[in-house]
Amino acid sequence: MEGEELTEQETALYDRQIRVWGADAQRRLTRAAILVYGINGAVAEFCKNIVLAGVGSLTLVDDRGVTEEALSANFLIPPDETLYEGKSLAELCSDSLKDFNPMVRVSAERAGDISGFSGDFYSKFDVVVVSCCTLTTKKLINDKCRRLSKRVAFYSADCRYSSGEIFVDLHSYKYTKNKLDEAIECELQYPSFEQEATAVSWSKLPRKMSKLYFAMRVIEKFEEKEGRSPGGVSITDLPAVLKLKNELCEAQSLKESQIPDALLERLVSSQIEFPPVCAILGGVLGQEVIKAISGKGDPLKNFFLFDAFDGKGVIEDISSRDA
């Protein structure tokens, strides 16, 4: 592989992980540029993981200030309120992350209005991770990434109390799979978030489909319809959420029991993320981003769903079934 050799310092620091994914993968990582738009607890975990892994650069965007919710599951925010003055969440997290690995360039940018970021802005990155944003913003950024001639891997991570999901869009992704000493060329086609979240007909999905997938869509729709900020649904909204669920089930010809009321109740019961779930989502997301950059290993396609209630971490490939 072309490119610079790892330095002695890098080899010593990354010794244990080079033994997992090899020196080539490590070289690719050190050249990768990552954009994070929106920082929740799960994404804070993700940031820690990829800074430790030694990516080239990490750019954080989140203009919000520190809130009680943000503090609860984010260990990157210092507890000293005097430090918050005039600083965005992204700036505070960036300060902490810089310390984790001096070989990674960590920076924060002000978003202002995200629509102002043109497609060119995203082409500077290899990976874009979004969270804490509205459905509209999520779709918009996903779309901009897909329009670029260069492949920019798109991920979203959402955690609702003790459950969460990761969405992956690698557009068109080629990689080599080693099976029994044989190298097999693989190509995967990913659909966009819009296609999945809104265009897939629920009744066509298999009966064993993760119920969490549907529940996440219901709450997402509710937020959009009511104009709520991301994660801004609470237990007092439950009756309205259940009503929307029934409407959606009817429109999509899906049995109402496929989205248990108890599950929806759990998802809206707290606006605080459950830290163990953040660790799990951030860990899996980190692993996936490393896979996509290094070209090593089968990437996740295209939803990962975890629910602390049953402890299952499930992968659902929704596109293939609809196609």
């Binding site: 010794d15 975990e45 993981n49 163990p276 660790a279 692993q287």
Partner: peptide, 17 residues
């Protein structure tokens, strides 16, 4: 030397809690 990466440890720690 045992192979080790941060992400697996993070996931496992979440499951322990």
């Amino acid at each position: 030397i045992v192979h080790a990466v941060a992400t697996t440890n993070a996931v496992i720690a979440g499951l322990i809690v």
